[in-house]
């Protein structure tokens, strides 16, 4: 996993609540057995006017000019600003894969669905929870000023606007450590393999039917 430390990035505002993972990456793209290449199909049903299928040449498809990600001023955005309960629904990790492949490294929202939130950290992306009021402020500022950027500093747990306003955010200490250092969870857990073996032996003694 790649590390995340700091980012200066263009912000795109996606002004919808309860954006689900079916919307982030529709089911037909889940047939892939790879974990890359989902970016061109992120938000496929909102982004294009035709029906997308795996293997299509997306550069020739009709785009939906009304969808915010398609607006010229938001091209190259790496910070997604969203509303509450972002990433609800299916556990598909293809959703963070698609967002990451599109170019997003940070998602800011008043709340996230649990599984999606967790999946982001496994892919070097930082989901940030701010209060609904602070998110509202960022929506207004983003929409008001073309080229609106934010600085996100994970180590300081702070988002800074170009005018110098700062929003502090919480992040779980373990997840922060993993993200800052680009650490692979499996490698870390394997450091506890003796403890796992000890637990397993005890567990088997207590509930042998689990090991039939």
């Amino acid at each position: 996993m790649h590390a995340f430390t700091q980012l200066n990035g263009l912000v795109v505002p996606l002004d919808r609540a309860n954006v689900d993972t079916d919307a982030i990456i529709p089911k037909q793209f889940l047939k892939s057995i790879k974990r890359s290449g989902f970016g061109p199909n992120a938000f496929d049903e909102w982004r294009y006017l035709d029906h997308g299928e795996p293997g299509m040449d997306n550069s020739h498809r009709k785009i939906n000019p009304d969808f915010v990600l398609n607006q010229p001023r938001y091209q190259g955005a790496s910070i997604l600003l969203a509303r509450e309960n972002f990433g609800c629904g299916s556990s598909r990790e293809h959703a963070p894969w698609a967002l990451e492949d599109y170019g997003f490294r940070v998602i800011i929202a008043p709340s996230f669905a649990d599984i999606f939130f967790n999946n982001c950290f496994k892919n070097g992306m930082l989901p940030i929870v701010l209060s609904a009021d602070d998110v509202d402020t960022l929506f207004k500022e983003t929409e008001a000023a073309e080229g609106y950027q934010l600085n996100v500093d994970l180590s300081a747990q702070a988002i800074t606007t170009q005018s110098g306003k700062t929003f502090k955010f919480d992040v779980d200490a373990f997840r922060k450590h993993c993200l800052l250092n680009g650490l692979d969870d499996i490698g870390l857990t394997m450091q506890h393999q003796d403890a796992i073996k000890t637990f397993e032996a005890k567990h088997k003694l207590a509930q042998p039917w689990l090991f039939n």
């Binding site: 556990s91 967790n118 999946n119 496994k122």
Partner: peptide, 10 residues
Amino acid sequence: HGIGTSEVEH
């Protein structure tokens, strides 16, 4: 509970 694919591997 449900998990993502990275957790499936984990």
